[in-house]
Structures are given as structure tokens and as C-alpha cells.
């Protein structure tokens, strides 16, 4: 059904320009944080509206220098998704015209979806299974 493909961060933009001919639709992109491996993994789901072929594109970024080129020129749909990933994970998208926080207030400190994020106001769940 859906294929998986791993590519290097440096080749992302060039590779995606080629892929755009087949996969014209970007339903979503997101990131996953792996602190023990010291990487942030970006996941792009690409789809073709004509044939429904699906490709899960994965890019691994180093956690301390999470930078990747923005795909907004290839799929305009990436705009807000990239802003959300920047908001929650702190990944910088080079070439994004308007990289601001989208859901959190502009003066927020830290990136909440990182696994090691802590906040003084965070309440720990009292009962966990």
C-alpha cells in the first residue's frame, strides 16, 4: 500500500521537485523526536490524487542543528505544517517566507513536543498505568 523512503536532508528539495510530478498532494507532514538517538525525524506523506499511490518520506535531522529546506515552493500545503513543526519542535525551515509560531503565543519559550520539554506550570498526571 504505502511505501517508505528515507532520504538525506540535503537532497530533500531536489528529490521532492522530482517527486512532485507523481505525488501532487501533500496531506500532512510532521516530526517525531528521538532524544536517545539524538535525531528529529520528519515524516512527509505524499499522495497522488489520480492513482492514490502513497509515499511516506522520512528525513532524519540532528537534534542540535535541526535545519532543512522548506518545501513550500513544491507544495504550498507545506506552509502551515512547517510552521506547526517549527512551533512544536523548533525545526528551522530554510526558505520559508513566514516562519512564526502558529498555535502557541509568539513569546513562548521552548518547543513543547520535544520529549525533554519541561515547564514550571506543567502538571504531572497523578495516576499513570
Amino acid at each position: 500500500m504505502s511505501e517508505e523512503k528515507k532520504i538525506a536532508a540535503a537532497e530533500l528539495l531536489i528529490e521532492c521537485r522530482k517527486l512532485q510530478a507523481t505525488y501532487d498532494y501533500l496531506p500532512f507532514m510532521t516530526a517525531i523526536d528521538y532524544p536517545e538517538k539524538n535525531i528529529i525525524e520528519l515524516v512527509y506523506r505524499l499522495q497522488s490524487t489520480a492513482t492514490n499511490e502513497t509515499l511516506m518520506l522520512k528525513v532524519e535531522l540532528p537534534r542540535d542543528k535541526a535545519e532543512v529546506s522548506s518545501l513550500i515552493s513544491v507544495w504550498p500545503a507545506a506552509d502551515w505544517h512547517e510552521r506547526e513543526v517549527y512551533d512544536m519542535f523548533g525545526v528551522k525551515f530554510i526558505g520559508h517566507p513566514d516562519l512564526r509560531r502558529i498555535l502557541l503565543p509568539p513569546d513562548w519559550q521552548g518547543y513543547p513536543l520535544l520529549k525533554d520539554y519541561t515547564d514550571p506550570n506543567m502538571i504531572k498526571k497523578p495516576v499513570t498505568i
Binding site: P27, F28, T30, I32, D33, V43, R45, P76, A77, D79, W80, H81, I129
Partner: peptide, 26 residues
Amino acid sequence: GFYFVSHGTNKPYRMKCRAPSFCNMN
């Protein structure tokens, strides 16, 4: 759609919600 990443534990490692309104508002 909800994108789940499971590590075999009883809690999801990561859950991402692909919200249609979010993408439509873009």
C-alpha cells in the same frame, strides 16, 4: 487521520492529528 507511532508500549510514542480544517484554512 491520526498518525500513530507505537513502540510496543501501552502509550503511543507520538500521535499526530491531521485536522482537515487546519489544512483547509491554509
